[in-house]
Structure formats: C-alpha cells, structure tokens
Design a binder for these strands. Structure first.
Length: 287
DNA sequence: CGTACGACCTGCCCGC
DNA sequence: TGCGGGCAGGTCGTAC
C-alpha cells in the first residue's frame, strides 16, 4: 500500500491496539521477506511489552521494553491486520478483514489479551529488522533519510537549495527518500498537480514561485490524505484501520485520458512512464 | 560522486 | 479457456 499517509494511519492504529500490551508469541510462517526475518527475532521479542509505535519516513518503529526496536517496512503490498477470535464485537469493527489471502500471512503476533496482529504481504517487498534504541540514528535504513515532509521539518530554503543542484526531474527528486522522506508515486503526482508543475520538469529550472507552491502542496496533499485515512486502491483494501478515502480525490493518479479537474481547465490527463514509474499530469495547466 | 535501471515477487487485467 | 505481457502505493545493488 504505502506512502506516508498510509503508513501513518497504520502506525496510529497499531499504537492504539498494541501499546502497553505484551507479545505472548510469534508465528513466522515465511521468514523470506525482502530481507530474511532475523534468526533471533522471536527470542528478542517474545515476552516484551510494546512501549511505543513511531514512524520515520515509510518505516514503522515498534519500541519494546528491552530497548530493542522492530523496524518494519510494508514494501508495495504489506499490511497489518488485527484479529480477535474471542470477541464477536471485535469482528464487526473495520479492523478485522478476511478480504485477503491467508496464504500471505507471513508473521503473526499473539498478544496478551487474545488478539493477533498479522503481517500479510503478497509480494514480500516488506521486511522486519531489529535494532537498539540508542543506535537508531546510525541504522542503515534510517540514517540517510531526508527530512519528514510535514510540519516545520521541511524548510523552503532546503527545497530551494536542493532543487538547484541537480539535473534530475522534480518528480524523481520528490520520490527520492534521501531528499524528502515519505513521498511515493501517487502523492508525487498529486502534489505536482496541485503545484502546477510538470513531473518531468528539471529541478534546477524551478523558479521561486514554483518552489513556494511545491512547498505548500506537499503539506496540503499529505495532510488531506492523512485526514481521509490515506488511499486504498486496487485490491489493497485491507490495511489496518478503515479503508482510506483519498483515492476519491485523486486529481491525476490513474486518471489517464480523463478530464482535468482544475476549474476552467479543459485539458486531459496524460500518462507518461519515466524511470520505470507512471507519471500522470495535465498538459494544459502544469508547466 | 550522481544518476539510471534492472531485480526482487505475486496477482490481476487485458488482448489474442 | 488459456496464455503471455504489462502493470502495481518501494527500494537496493550495480553499472556507467
């Protein structure tokens, strides 16, 4: 599923359900994810209480009482599902789903109050790793990440500085996690539409007005998506928490040949593949 | 060094 | 109906 909004929704839901709970057992059905589940994973985690669940970029960080942190990434198709076989009311909530194939339930965490957190990931691009709290700032996954895009973390001056020194396209740059962390293909397209900038525009050619719009659009698009619970597309419906609704507000993503939704624009949305990813934009109003 | 691209993996959808 | 090709919300290792 996941770009920043989806990962953040997942984090919040996980936090709500597992904070201060104790992991009683873990079942590893398939350790062969993007990286193999560490051999000592069970040994380190079973019996531990969850202290906190945080997010950095698209990584979910599950803090344990013993100062270990589970670092989880959902890849393209990873999702957490929460089940409680002993509570019939629980089954009625949106946190439970059986819309996915249990064939890809790779990990199952059993908690003290009889519910299970299941990690399901058909493509297995996601993974679980472990590190220690004090070493997180030098962790190989987290160390090189660019600033978080929300709030005051992302400074306009940073955008001005960084866009100036590269000949890459602005969309490629937005999706580069070392530049800004958390933005993927959907939100890069939507952000650039709002900012009225063509995805294939060379970063260094952006002017101050465009960078100002870009800065604003990054925040606006992600905040709006977060508010709607992220985006749920295709068959990826069953992330933890309720289905997202931002897909209903897509202006360009997956809208090839459809009318541009900007007021007074008569353009059509085009789809162009560059560097292996589909870009969607309006030829009329994005420059 | 910066940048582009293939590889990793499964499932779905479309055209023949 | 079956099969092949292309597509999918990500990121890393490699090659230039």
């Amino acid at each position: 599923m996941p770009e920043l909004p989806e990962v953040e929704v997942t984090r919040r839901t996980l936090l709500k359900f597992i904070k201060n709970k104790v992991i009683k057992n873990i079942k590893i059905n398939n350790p062969n994810l993007r990286f193999k589940v560490p051999a000592d994973f069970k040994k380190i985690i079973i019996g531990q209480k969850i202290v906190n669940v945080l997010r950095r970029s698209k990584y979910i960080l599950i803090y344990l009482e013993n100062n270990y942190v589970i670092i989880s990434h959902l890849g393209m198709s990873g999702k957490f599902l929460i089940k409680n076989n002993y509570d019939k009311d629980f089954l009625k909530t949106s946190y439970y789903s059986n819309e996915f194939s249990s064939k890809h339930n790779h990990l199952e965490f059993l908690f003290s109050n009889n519910f299970r957190v299941i990690y399901n990931d058909p493509r297995r691009f996601g993974f679980f790793a472990l590190d220690i709290v004090s070493k997180l700032d030098i962790n190989k996954f987290l160390r090189k990440l660019g600033p978080e895009p929300l709030g005051r973390n992302l400074k306009k001056d940073y955008l001005i500085l960084k866009t100036k020194i590269t000949q890459r396209t602005i969309k490629t740059l937005l999706m580069d996690q070392h530049f800004i962390s958390g933005i993927g293909n959907i939100y890069a397209n939507e952000i650039l539409f709002m900012a009225k900038i063509k995805p294939n525009k060379i970063s260094s050619r952006l002017n101050l007005v465009e960078i100002t719009r870009l800065h604003l659009s990054i925040n606006k698009v992600l905040i709006r998506a977060l508010k709607l619970g992220g985006s749920s597309i295709k068959d990826f419906k069953s992330l933890v928490g309720q289905k997202g609704r931002f897909q209903n507000e897509f202006k360009v993503y997956d809208r090839e040949d459809l009318k541009c939704l900007r007021a007074r624009c008569s353009g059509l949305i085009v789809r162009v593949v560059s560097q292996g990813r589909a870009s969607f934009f309006c030829n009329e109003c994005q420059n």
